[in-house]
Design a protein around this nucleic acid. Structure first.
Length: 941
RNA sequence: GCUGGGGUGGCGGAAUUGGUAGACGCCCAGGACUUAAAAUCCUGUGACCUUAGGGUCGUACGGGUUCGAUUCCCGUCCCCAGUACCA
């Protein structure tokens, strides 16, 4: 290879060599520790964007690093190839979704290959191929057997003009994205997976992965699951006066009471505040309300209908909806106090959470407080901030202070209503009959137990998490393997009939009805049980099903009987390092965790959590380009450019350079998409290695990265400098090269002692006492330590800086190829070899080329078992360090000393220092602080 | 509103978690080489003051603890992300 750096030629050469030798093929090897490096699989949209590059480059760096550390690394890639864009393309351009998808995968695979990512391509999985989705169906059948897959009615977004169901995104703003008509809710039968059955585990198992996951993601997951501990309380409900009242019995929400009346069940986290309840408030959709809607007065019924329609509209997140409601005239009895409470319908009560019914305690809940204020309902304080002195005469219980209902209380006594604040903290009960005086915490458990004994309630836990609705009325997804038979009802397809294959084509209109329901060859079938004519389910599965277990398939990608062989998966899984965007913090990452737990219960895996460590990389955004007048693209820092806008909104940039002002046309890239830069173009202009190096160097991996093309040239320059450095030394090294191993052992007699100072500044010129050589070796070993630590901490920007420093140190060390002594050559070879090895995870092609230049191409390649350089702490240690001397905390001087210098000696040296004497002259030394190896601070007065 | 994370040069960002703030890189300026340009190399590059040596200030802002604070504590302002009445 040439002494000049040709990125393209080098990259092609090594990609071919890796490919020919199967360098990245992973096989089970019980001798080696395994490492499973995984990145979130791409959707084959047709184009890679810089966000992908960042994600996959970080993963590849990790895979290389672990390989160099001697791990048996599994690093696979695949395609999340089911989903809506393929159908949109079908509707818009009449293409076949399958062809569209396959073509996109071809293009994107090429893009990934040009980046030189070290994947085991043999293990690719494709979600849209029957070999894969067969096992989506297999899992569905298992879950159906386990009672984890079930069907029920639910409300979906519905556009009556288009006769279409809409996703939440398509219904945003309450209007159909296609025709602009208002969106309503529609009841539809949907298949669900019972994620709620694992709600507790999903929350509690976090303890096992806490250390390896970003705490922001864990926080979002636990918020999403939203466990609250509380109690159910049943309130007797009756009609007042002449009104008719009918109580439908709905499991968990309503029941009959002994006297034939009704009971409504309420969920509360604060049963300790129940004496402060002033009303029962129900959702407009609550069964008791809907069953009695005709019995209410015109006014009440229409208000309820109004609330219901208002609530069906998507919420406006900017403004808080004003409280609204109406008294139904029904009466509920507080089972603790025996008080009569009015039953209201309120717009702030959600049917989907808890029981769709709550007890309103205005003094101790902000929403109830606002509701009570709006409608002038009584407000009664039942929790005091501080403990109340016990009154012996009342049997040890605190005496309840006499407060007027709704009046402000004083001092430590709880809420101050005049300032419009509810007291929502825990405290001590007052005005609560025999419970007064207890702490909130005690009362919560005891009152729940009391309710249970008296059969009007029980302690309960509710979750915000809901079951996962997986039915989609779409073509491009996994068919749900269920058959409806008029005689036998809902029947699962037989395992031996899997996969239930998608037909070649279907009329895709985008109208919202399942395209499969228009393909009789698909849906006409026979019942697996009675063999009679039957109809297939024509909905397909949510694409998140595919991504819930794909990383297990990589371990055994050709298995035709099972999703994967549990024995093989037991070697590779769980995933050691997962990398992806934090936009999947709740959806995909909860589904995948859920799926693993199901697989564990099936007996396929033996652990609880699929991902040991998770890294969420920041987005690549906001590229701003400036195109030169002459047509050549030139990039400037946005801050250096004055941007002006003409009447049409066209932007012009002006920059002063060399005293002249140049004007440019400005293109601004979309921030949200971050895909304005074409990775292929970057690779074409700068090479894959420079692109990879720069994208990792430019910013910490979890920060947002504003793409700025100017910086990438720095990466190119660095690679070129390293390249030139190696070739400058090549013949000198070769002359002394006696077929040494990749990482040369220390030559005999090369000691660790030596003079010199430790600075990151340029090295002093070579002297004949071996100082330069020892200095270089020190820098080499310090860098080895830094780079290793960085990788372990998932930092990719700082090790690049460390490598640049090492490269600068080699260039500036003062040792010249034609005059170097044997030990100096050794030190240079060690430094260059270490530099090359540590460069590999960032820029593997260049590293391979330089490695073969240093050790000789006959001695194998990096991809074939090379090891990370070995860190020698003795060599990294400095003989003499610089100790700053402060006077009253201000830096005034520096002294040189050995790291072992005693505190007394350091003190003496500091005081003897010329500059120190200047500053302390005529003053009294009050105190001297000596921090060993760090500094000396002299306090004077 | 609530929750979480932040605020360091012209820019991206370092800083061994209380010990020399600004590593590394970008941009920019000056110089060398060149007929010229590109490339490369060298020098400078937080602000202010100073003829020089050097000095003063400086990590959003205001306080505090400490010999010493980007780092810890209290208060304020601003930015980003998540979330939406969860009883």
């Amino acid at each position: 290879m040439d002494e000049k750096y040709f990125a393209k030629k080098t990259e092609q050469k090594w990609r071919r060599k890796w490919d020919e030798s199967g360098a990245f093929h992973a096989e089970i090897d019980d001798e080696k520790p395994k490492f499973y490096q995984l990145e979130m699989l791409p959707y084959p949209s047709g184009n890679l964007h810089m966000g992908h590059v960042r994600n996959y480059t970080a993963g590849d760096a990790m895979a290389w690093y672990k390989r160099l550390r001697g791990f048996n690394v599994l690093h696979p890639i695949g395609w999340d190839s089911f989903g809506q864009p393929a159908e949109d393309a079908a509707v818009k351009r009449g293409v076949n979704p399958r062809n569209w998808t396959d073509e996109n995968i071809e293009v994107m695979r090429g893009q990934l290959e040009r980046l030189g990512l070290s994947y085991d391509w043999r293990r690719q999985m494709y979600a849209h191929r029957p070999e894969y989705y067969k096992f989506d169906q297999w899992f569905f059948l298992k879950m159906f057997e386990m009672g984890l897959a079930y069907k029920r009615m639910t409300q979906v977004n519905w556009c009556s003009h288009d006769q279409a169901t809409l996703s939440n995104e398509q219904a945003s703003g309450g209007l159909c994205w296609r025709c602009g008509n208002p969106v309503t809710k529609k009841d539809l039968e949907q298949w669900f997976l019972k994620t709620t059955a694992y709600a507790d585990q999903l929350l509690d198992d976090v303890a096992g992965i806490e250390a390896g996951w970003p705490h922001n993601v864990l926080k979002r997951q636990s918020d999403w699951i939203g466990r609250s501990e509380g109690a159910y309380v049943d309130f007797e409900v009756t009609a007042s006066g002449e009104t008719l009242f009918y109580c439908p019995v709905v499991d968990g929400m309503t029941s009959y009471s002994d006297d034939g009346g009704g009971r409504v069940r309420v969920f509360t986290t604060r049963i300790d505040t129940i004496y402060g309840a002033n009303a029962i408030v129900l959702a407009a959709e609550h069964p008791i309300i809907q069953a009695n809607i005709d019995n209410f007065s015109e006014e009440v019924a229409s208000k309820i209908a109004f609330i219901r329609t208002e609530n069906a509209k998507p919420a406006d997140h900017e403004t808080e909806t004003e409280k609204d409601g109406i008294d139904t005239g029904l009466i509920a009895i507080n089972p603790f106090s025996g008080e009569d409470l009015p039953v209201w319908v309120g717009n702030y009560v959600m049917m989907e959470y808890g029981t769709g019914a709550l007890m309103s305690v205005p003094a101790h809940d902000e929403r109830d407080f606002a509701f009570a204020q709006k409608f002038g309902l009584p407000i009664k304080t039942v929790i005091a901030k501080d403990e109340i002195p016990l009154n012996a005469e009342e049997g040890g219980r605190a005496s309840a202070p006499k407060h007027d209902v709704g009046s402000p209380t004083e001092g430590a006594w709880a809420a101050d209503y005049t300032s419009g604040i509810a007291f929502t903290d825990y405290g001590f009960l007052i005005n609560s009959g025999e419970w007064s005086g207890q702490s909130s915490a005690d009362a919560k458990t005891q009152m729940a137990a009391f309710a249970a004994i008296n059969e009007f309630g029980e302690a309960a836990t509710t979750f915000r998490l809901r079951d996962w609705g997986i039915s989609r009325q779409r073509f491009w997804g996994t068919p749900i393997p269920i058959i409806y038979c008029d005689t036998c009802g809902v029947q699962p397809e037989k395992y031996e009939n899997l996969p239930v294959e998608l037909p070649e084509n279907a009329p895709i209109t985008g109208s919202g009805e399942s395209p499969l329901s228009k393909v009789p060859e698909f849906y006409k079938t026979k019942c697996p049980k009675c063999e009679g004519p039957a109809r297939r389910e024509t909905d397909t599965m949510d694409t998140f099903v595919n991504s819930s277990w794909y990383f297990f398939r990589y371990t055994d990608p050709t298995n035709q009987i099972l999703p994967f062989d549990p024995k093989i998966a037991a070697y590779w899984t769980p995933v050691d390092q997962y990398i992806g965007g934090d936009d999947h913090a709740v959806m995909h990452l909860i589904y995948a965790r859920f799926w693993s737990k199901v697989m564990r219960d099936i007996g396929l895996v033996s652990f609880d959590e699929p991902f040991r460590r998770l890294l969420t990389q920041g987005m690549v955004v906001g590229e701003t380009l400036f195109a030169d007048e002459s047509g050549k693209r030139v990039y400037y820092q946005p801050a250096d450019v004055l941007v002006t806008r003409d009447a049409k909104g066209k932007m012009t940039g002006a920059v002063s350079k060399g005293g002249k002002t140049l004007k440019f046309a400005v293109e601004r890239m979309s921030k949200s998409k971050g895909n304005g830069v074409d990775p292929d173009e970057m690779v074409e202009i700068y090479g894959a290695d420079a692109t990879r190096l720069f994208i990792l160097f430019a910013a910490p991996i979890n920060n947002e990265l504003v793409w700025n093309e100017a910086g990438i040239e720095g990466a190119v320059r660095f690679l070129q400098r390293v390249w030139r450095l190696v070739y400058r030394w090549r013949s000198a090294l070769a002359g002394k090269n006696t077929g040494s191993p990749a990482w040369p052992a220390s030559p005999a007699g090369s000691g660790t002692a030596g003079g010199g100072i430790l600075r990151t500044e340029p090295m002093p010129p070579a002297s004949d006492d071996g100082a330069s050589e020892r200095l270089l070796r020190r820098k080499t070993h310090q860098t080895i330590q830094r780079v290793g630590e960085s990788f372990e901490n998932l930092q990719f920007n700082t090790p690049v800086a460390a490598l640049m420093e090492l490269s600068n140190a080699i260039a500036d060390c003062g040792i010249e190829p034609n005059t170097a002594s044997e030990t100096e050559i050794f030190a240079v070879r060690e430094a260059l070899t270490a530099l090359t090895l540590m460069l590999t995870p960032f820029s593997p092609h260049t590293a391979e080329e330089l490695y073969s230049a240093i050790i000789g191409s006959e001695n194998g390649m990096l991809a074939n078992g090379a090891r990370f350089p070995e860190y020698n702490p003795d060599l990294a240690k400095s003989d003499e360090i610089e100790i700053p001397v402060q006077i009253n905390g201000k830096l005034r001087s520096r002294i040189m000393a050995s790291p072992e210098t005693s505190n007394e000696d350091l003190e003496k040296m500091a005081l003897a220092d010329e500059k120190t004497r200047e500053y302390t002259a005529g003053k009294t030394v009050v105190k001297i602080i000596v921090v060993p190896r760090r500094l000396v601070n002299i306090v004077v007065r």
